[in-house]
Design a protein around this nucleic acid. Structure first.
Lengths: 355, 355
DNA sequence: CTCATCCTTGAAAGCGCTTACAAGATGCCT
DNA sequence: AGGCATCTTGTAAGCGCTTTCAAGGATGAG
């Protein structure tokens, strides 16, 4: 075994090399490294010294194979645009790290390629958390699964945020501004949580004795918001308030409207969902709904781990509360101090003078 | 072997079960699954049928152990706040997926816990890409390493974006607005790329025969920007232009300034770095520098894979070009059609009437 | 001093794959 | 028909660990 220019061995040391050097058996090395078994302090030190000398790093593959556990959790996300997914991922990773579990990420993107990606993911993790993707393929497997923001399913663990009621309250708030021609922008068929938001929109209308309009189908991208704004400006779509499925869409629409000289919220209210950073910075501030996204990620990792270790037996359903954040885009005075505005560490520019 | 309520086997099928069912040897199953070797069409179909019947999913651990390859790349990020890291990750994952490699993510966070996290990461991947974290521990290992946004190091692969020259140009642009008391906000000691941005700031001053001020130390968080804004308002800090290390900081400072009635860019110019979404939406639009973050991530995955497969032998250094994005916060008219403003798919609200 | 008891340590059997290597089957030519 | 090259398939030896089981040593009681 020769070393390279930097003087480090070309090939990684194995447990055998460590055992040899410490003059013990590989079983003892394994015990020391596992930390659990009873080993004399003297041998422990010998082994640790050898590990150190050789820069020994155990092979994860061999370990997983022998122990039948990967100590790794998988997360499948449809994309990584916007702060929503990043935040979720951060919560997931952080909790997983606390549980000493690694995290493998798959961005599902196009269904074709992702099927194989998810299958291959399943070969290297103990369990998988899935957001917004079809999991039919997983259903069949023996891996543990957690569905994030998925529909009710008694057979599967689900972590979701509250949508229906907050959407109803948000819609009611907009109606309370005297608006009567509201449009829901988003595709209720695209994801379960969007469906629930639309249902809340409908429920508020029904509660007020109004007829809800059909949803304006649009996916959650800024470019689509642009298109919606144009249709409104062109008179193609008539509304005095827009309840949007997420903030990106709402922001893009609002920007398009403002650019064309439409007064928001004077002529038309716009509200969103997610409370992204930009929503705090634009004028008028975007009224929206804040979800505990990080907590969702953390809880997903937590439950997945419990399912894997057997600490949890039955799949359960968890719904985390959300919070309506009132700013100016709905028609409220910008400096309204709604109770949910207190985010002490974040700036809430309110009486900004522009120009 | 009993099945559970849903009728799926409790324990995953192995290659032996598949071989038995297809009446072939495990070697043949392996060959069919690898897809490479020469196998009769008839046997191939038999095997594939058995695989299908049994819902066979190979064990990643066994596979990695036997083949001495994990087919997984690791990525170590310091955090996941803001769009920068998410974008990088997206580029990395996407490219890795194209190369049929899995991705394991570690958020380094606190050094203490992350040392063990990175060590354990190293046991399950073929190579590691690191951003902004100490890699002394990795240097010693036998794993391949790519440094993202790291300092020059002939021994290690480095992927970076151009900082010095674009920072010099950006600073010159601000100086061109007749500003003379510029402050750099950020901590050049915190990361190599911030150091380069500060160096560019200094270079521009030197080029103009001016004395550069000491940097205003601040980390890249909105809360710190708040503090800087307060110091300026209090007169604690005097400046007619702020060159900020990133957009979050610039946006928070600008918001704080505007809220206090300071005219941006009339009284004071503010520019940032990164071109985050919010920078396009705020008024005035934030003049900043756009980096090909996604490409950086993709290139990192690419090079790492090449290093692992041996397609690349020598560590190399890659510097990707950046682009100054002129908006209103530097003092330019908001509707200036600077050449780098053409982002056709993104809205650039320009003549927005607010209230 | 002897024997039972408790601890520490080692031997060895897998975990589920990949991959030389070898053997058998098939087809072609003379 | 026999001999040889070619192609397909099987045999078996690991890959580097964990973990059971058993052996040997140390310890204490009688």
């Amino acid at each position: 075994m020769t070393d390279d220019a930097q003087g480090r061995p070309q090939v990684a040391a194995t447990i055998y090399a460590v055992a040899d050097r410490a003059r013990v058996s590989i079983a003892t090395v394994s015990r020391v490294l596992a930390g659990s078994a009873r080993v004399t302090e003297a041998t422990r030190r010998k082994v640790l010294a050898a590990v150190d000398d050789l820069d020994y790093l155990p092979s994860g593959a061999a370990r997983s194979l022998a122990a039948r556990r990967h100590h790794t959790l998988g997360l499948v996300l449809p994309e990584l645009g916007g702060p929503y997914y990043a935040e979720l991922l951060a919560g997931f990773e952080t909790r997983a790290a606390e549980l000493q579990q690694g995290v493998m990420l798959v961005i599902a993107g196009h269904a074709r390629a992702s099927t194989s990606a998810v299958r291959s993911l399943a070969t290297r993790v103990d369990g998988i958390a899935v957001l917004g993707c079809d999991l039919e393929q997983l259903r069949a497997g023996t891996k543990k699964v957690v569905l994030i923001a998925g529909d009710d399913d008694p057979d599967v663990e689900v972590i979701a945020t509250e949508n229906l009621d907050s959407s109803r309250r948000l819609t009611n708030h907009v109606l309370g501004h005297g608006r009567s021609r509201l449009l829901f922008v988003g595709d209720p068929g695209a994801a379960h949580d969007v469906r629930e938001r639309f249902d809340g929109f409908v429920a508020a209308h029904v509660g007020a004795g109004l007829e809800p309009a059909q949803p304006v189908l649009a996916s959650f991208r800024e470019s689509e918001g642009q298109g919606v704004a144009e249709r409104i400006i062109a008179g193609d779509l008539r509304a005095d308030a827009l309840v949007c499925g997420n903030d990106e869409l709402a922001l893009a629409i609002m920007a398009g409207l403002l650019r064309a000289g439409v007064d928001v919220p004077g002529d038309i209210s716009v509200v969103g969902w997610d409370d992204v950073m930009t929503s705090r910075y634009v004028r008028p501030g975007l009224t929206t709904v804040r979800q505990p996204v990080r907590d969702v990620g953390a809880l997903a990792a937590d439950r997945l781990h419990q399912l894997v270790t057997g600490a949890a037996r039955e799949p359960d359903r968890h719904v985390l509360p959300t919070e309506v954040v009132i700013r100016g885009s709905c028609g409220c005075p910008e400096n309204a101090s709604a109770p949910d505005l207190d985010l002490p560490t974040l700036p809430h520019p309110q009486k900004v003078r522009v120009r």
